Simulated assay, not measured.
Amino acid sequence: MTTDRIALVTGANQGIGRRVAADLAADHRTVFVGSRDAARGERAAAEIGGSAVAVQLDVTDPASVAAAADRIADEAGRLDLLVNNAGISTTRRVGLAEFRRTSTPGTAPLDDVRAVWEVNVLGVLSVYQAVLPLLRRSGDARVVNVTSALGSLSLGLDPSSPTREAYDVVYAASKTALHGVTLAMLLESATTGVKVNLVSPGFARTALTGFHGTESAEDAAREVVRVSRLGPGGASGTFTTWEGVDLPW
């Protein structure tokens, strides 16, 4: 696949984001590799090679977000694809069992909730607002928000769903809030023309899960990449995992 499309992937110096950036760069796209740590971003972009370009981007820092958008505007003039991948599950150094025990509505530290939502919800909205003018310059713009099946209220309410017992107010609820933000983006797309999709990559062995996951970053990235590669005729408003399997919002 050869294309001159311009992409930005946030949180792309490691894990799923890095795999997504590498696969998109292999399509000969120009891929801005967003990384909070500039040096780690430069290393990741150099190792990805090709058309990968590092850009310092801390989604919780308005100045950093604005500077990244300005750089993309200066160097590329537009943006065709935004992959909002940056995310965290907790700021605490605890194991998965301890995290679940202490992330109920009655136990979750509010500082942890605020920090996670700042990245997973407000960070997504901040980057979207900053690059929306660039997306509107594209003839085929798309936003892919990376979420989790844990964020599905429908699954959380289903007694037979394996995600029900894992629903928490720190990480899972932040993804539910992201779904609300994504819906608002989708409704706005009637005036912006920007397609919007949600993707759950699965339970990957990455830093976000403390490397407790069941899938590799390569496998987990597969659906994010598939949706990111959709062309002008590709669907908007989907929530999928694993090769186009639909999930309930």
Rank of each mutant, 00 (worst) to 15 (best):
A115D: 12
A115V: 05
V116R: 01
V116C: 03
V116M: 01
W117I: 06
E118H: 12
V119K: 05
N120Q: 01
V121T: 13
V121F: 11
L122E: 05
L125A: 14
L125T: 10
S126F: 03
S126E: 08
Y128I: 08
Q129G: 10
A130R: 05
A130K: 03
L132N: 13
P133I: 08
P133D: 07
L134G: 06
L134Q: 08
L134S: 06
R136L: 05
R136E: 15
R137K: 15
S138F: 13
G139A: 12
G139K: 07
G139Y: 00
G139E: 14
G139V: 05
D140F: 04
D140K: 00
A141C: 07
A141Y: 09
A141S: 12
R142A: 10
R142F: 03
R142G: 00
V143E: 02
V143P: 02
V144Y: 08
N145F: 03
S148R: 05
A149Y: 04
L153M: 15
S154M: 03
S154V: 15
L155D: 14
G156P: 10
G156D: 01
G156Y: 07
L157F: 11
L157W: 12
D158S: 05
S160I: 00
P162R: 11
P162T: 10
T163H: 14
T163L: 13
E165G: 13
A166P: 00
A166I: 02
V169D: 09
V170Q: 06
V170C: 10
V170T: 15
V170Y: 07
Y171C: 11
A173V: 00
S174R: 09
S174L: 12
T176K: 01
T176F: 00
T176P: 01
A177C: 11
L178I: 08
H179L: 06
G180K: 03
T182P: 09
